[in-house]
């Protein structure tokens, strides 16, 4: 499949023949008897920037965690980069090295420095030499604008800095798609902007992203698709302008009324 370059001027009107990176077909998931995801069908193409929003308990985090098998789905297919997600541990590990994830709680390794946090996975999984891994890490630390903190420990950094390190750490594996699970929800307001700016830079460079967030400003500015989830179902999936100005479903309208009040 050929992919036409994604120009920033008219991304929404250009018909892109990009590769499919994540394909979810008829996926259902239960926690015991309680169904948390119902009939999920989702196609993510290379270069897509998708924001997933919705009330708490709607299953948005669960959905993206199914993509790197932090959660297991009981029915349906989840296919990442052509590899189907099943019990097979080899597939799971392969998929995980192509899917990067950033967590609400950062989850940096506290006993390792920033640099060591970043080089750990490339050296262990991609068998990189230490010097190459360090050069790579420095490159991404520069991209998230904190190269000078390379030898500090996570406890010495602010929340915003820690999250940016977490982003750099995930990027060091050079994944094909990045998952963000409410990356700014645990941050003080003054630090949210620096993380969102970093994510915006990433988006502009063409990274495929799925982002669960409550930051509607970010969605409007950066996303090319906004998905609304409620009670385990994908309710609405459209471009930001249609989503915010002209939501199709009542549930979406209600949610937007509540969220956009302040």
């Amino acid at each position: 499949m050929s992919s036409t370059p994604n120009t920033n001027e008219t991304p929404r009107t250009t018909i892109r023949q990009a590769n499919v990176i994540v394909e979810i077909r008829n996926m259902n998931k239960w926690f015991g008897k309680f169904q948390v995801l119902t009939d999920i069908n989702l196609t993510v193409r290379e270069g897509d920037k998708i924001v997933i929003c919705g009330p708490s308990g709607s299953g948005k985090s669960t959905l993206i965690r199914c993509i790197n098998r932090l959660e297991e789905h009981q029915e349906g297919d989840v296919i990442v980069d052509g590899i189907e997600l099943t019990e097979d541990i080899k597939n799971i590990d392969k998929i995980r090295s192509e899917v990067g994830m950033c967590f609400q709680q950062f989850n940096l390794f506290p006993h390792l420095s920033v640099m060591e946090n970043c080089v750990l996975a490339p050296m262990s999984v991609r068998k990189m030499h230490r010097e190459d891994a360090k050069a790579l890490a420095l490159q991404y630390l520069e991209k998230v604008r904190i190269p000078e903190q390379a030898n500090k420990f996570p406890s010495q950094l602010s929340g915003g800095q820690q999250q940016r390190v977490a982003i750099a750490r995930a990027l060091c594996m050079q994944p094909r798609v990045m998952l963000f699970d409410e990356p700014t929800s645990a941050l003080d307001p003054e630090m949210i902007a620096e993380v969102l700016d970093t994510m915006e830079d990433l988006a502009r460079e063409g990274m495929t992203m799925l982002c669960v967030t409550h930051e509607m400003g970010f969605a409007r500015k950066v996303a090319d698709r906004v998905i609304f989830m409620d009670q385990g179902q994908l309710v609405e999936d459209s471009d930001p302008i249609s989503f915010f100005e002209n939501p199709k479903h009542d549930r979406t309208k209600k949610f937007l009324e509540q969220v956009l009040q302040h």
């Binding site: 932090l70 392969k94 390794f109 750990l120 262990s124 999984v125 750490r169 995930a170 594996m173």
Partner: peptide, 15 residues
């Protein structure tokens, strides 16, 4: 050890 540590390791593809 916080569960998030395990999740970060898995997400990075570590064995």
């Amino acid at each position: 050890v916080p569960n998030g540590q395990f999740e970060a390791c898995k997400a990075l593809g570590l064995k």
